[in-house]
């Protein structure tokens, strides 16, 4: 069970309140969590990562356990606290004003 916290715009798009809880097949990584997330909420396809290349969108970042995971390979296992459901994976719109 993986907890995911989405930014406001994406929560609105997916019509969810609060955190999303996902069951992820196999070893949980950013990639497999996004796979599960987009599977449940198809409207989010393309909003976090490119639909064709899987590349993270430039203004999106991934945080967990006070670490920035944005630049790790997307199939890197998530921190054990995230896998244990103790901490959420944060998907964040980069701070850029406006």
């Amino acid at each position: 069970m993986i907890r995911v916290k989405l930014p406001t715009h994406l929560r609105n798009l997916a019509h969810v309140n609060g955190e999303v809880v996902l069951d992820v097949d196999g070893e949980a990584s950013v990639s497999s969590v996004l796979e599960a997330l987009e599977g449940r909420y198809p409207v989010l396809r393309g909003t976090i990562r490119d639909q064709n290349t899987g590349k993270r969108r430039a203004f999106v970042r991934y945080f967990a356990c006070e670490q920035d995971l944005s630049h790790d390979p997307a199939d890197t296992p998530l921190p054990k606290q995230v896998i244990a459901g103790e901490e959420p994976l944060l998907i964040v719109g980069a701070m850029a004003g406006g």
Partner: peptide, 8 residues
């Protein structure tokens, strides 16, 4: 659209 989350 936004630069953050792309096109819908």
């Amino acid at each position: 659209s936004t630069a953050w989350f792309g096109q819908l």
